[in-house]
Amino acid sequence: MSSLFKSELTLSESGFLFDHATGLTYTLNPTGQFIFRQMQKGVEGPEILTRLQEEFEVDETTARKDLDDFVRQLKEFELID
């Protein structure tokens, strides 16, 4: 199955993310963990936005900002293209 992520990543319950190919580790806050798990399941951006609003009871502007920030950081760390 093809993945959105450039390498194999494992996220623990505590939010500790491990990249198996590089050995790098990251810490995700609850919002990041939620978005990451949605992306892992293959959920598309607009649906993640809706689910974020429901999960954290925030408005669309806040949810969009969180999603955009998270995706930007994933790109910065070269975890996605």
């Binding site: 390498s7 194999e8 198996h20 190919a21 590089t22 050995g23």
Partner: peptide, 9 residues
């Protein structure tokens, strides 16, 4: 200190 990898390349 070091960590093992799974890296096909």
């Amino acid at each position: 200190a070091a960590i093992t990898l799974r890296n096909e390349a």
